[in-house]
Simulated assay, not measured.
Amino acid sequence: MLVEYFTDIFLKELETGYPDCYDRLNEAMKQREQQVLAFYEEGIRKSIFHDINGKLLIIQDELLRSMFNVKYLMTNQLTVQQILYDYYQLKKIQLFKPEKLSAIDDEIMMPKIEHMAQKITKNLF
């Protein structure tokens, strides 16, 4: 959801118009990144995740921003829900070791993906 709401335009306007708020947001985003990296590292340590550089995984999530573009969606005949579901599948396969994949219940994620898709679609159109 952060990818959708914190657009480059929003961040630039926040930085120029409200530098103190921008600094606080930037610090919070750094803390969030550290928490995500710690989560990945714990999964690697517990032999649940593949040993992949967490920073690359975080940067990879930024790709979603370019996918949630009306022109891109229409040109490629995609829906937001398709992108979110396929991205979830890619991340799952990329992160989890093969022997751990069977423990994942995709049904738990479906309502979350649908909810995110509705919110993002509402903001796009």
Rank of each mutant, 00 (worst) to 15 (best):
D8K: 11
L56T: 06
E33N: 14
L14C: 09
Q89N: 11
M67S: 05
L78F: 03
A38P: 04
D20A: 14
G54T: 02
A117V: 07
E4Y: 13
V80K: 00
K97D: 02
K91T: 15
D8W: 08
I59M: 15
T121M: 07
R45V: 02
Y18V: 07
Q60F: 15
P19D: 00
Q60H: 12
P111C: 08
T7K: 02
A38W: 08
V80I: 05
G17C: 02
V3F: 02
I104L: 08
I104M: 01
K55G: 12
V70Q: 12
L11Q: 03
I104V: 12
K55Y: 13
S102A: 15
L63H: 10
A28H: 14
E62A: 12
E33W: 02
A28F: 12
A38H: 07
M29P: 00
P111R: 03
Y72K: 05
N53Y: 09
T16R: 11
K71I: 13
F96Q: 03
Y40G: 02
T16W: 03
F49A: 01
C21W: 05
P111E: 04
E15K: 15
K112W: 05
D20P: 06
F68C: 00
A103W: 08
I52H: 06
E33Y: 09
S66C: 10
K112C: 09
M1V: 11
D20G: 07
E13M: 11
G43Q: 04
M74I: 08
K91Y: 11
L57T: 04
L37V: 05
V36F: 11
L64W: 03
I108W: 11
D105Y: 11
A38M: 09
Q118E: 13
Y5G: 11
K71E: 15
E99G: 01
I59T: 15
Q82C: 06
Q89P: 05
A28R: 14
Y72E: 06
T75E: 15
N123L: 12
L64P: 01
Q34L: 13
F39C: 06
E27W: 06
L57K: 09
Q60S: 13
Q31I: 14
Q89S: 08
G54I: 03
H115P: 00
I93F: 10
E33S: 11
R24P: 00
K122L: 13
K91A: 15
Y88C: 05
T16G: 04
I120S: 00
F6E: 04
K91E: 10
E107P: 00
Y72T: 13
K91W: 09
S47E: 10
V70M: 11
I9G: 04
D105G: 04
L78Q: 07
N76W: 09
D105V: 08
F39K: 03
S66K: 10
S47Y: 10
I83W: 04
Y87W: 15
L37W: 06
I44S: 09
T16D: 05
Y22V: 05
T16L: 06
Y88V: 03
L25Q: 06
L101G: 00
L95S: 04
F6A: 15
A103L: 14
F68W: 09
D23E: 14
P111S: 03
L101H: 03
L57G: 13
S66W: 10
K71G: 14
I44K: 14
Q81L: 08
S102F: 09
R32M: 10
Q81M: 05
Q118K: 15
L95D: 01
L78P: 04
Y5A: 09
H50G: 02
L95V: 06
D20R: 15
K122V: 08
L95W: 06
Q81R: 14
I108H: 05
A103D: 07
M1F: 07
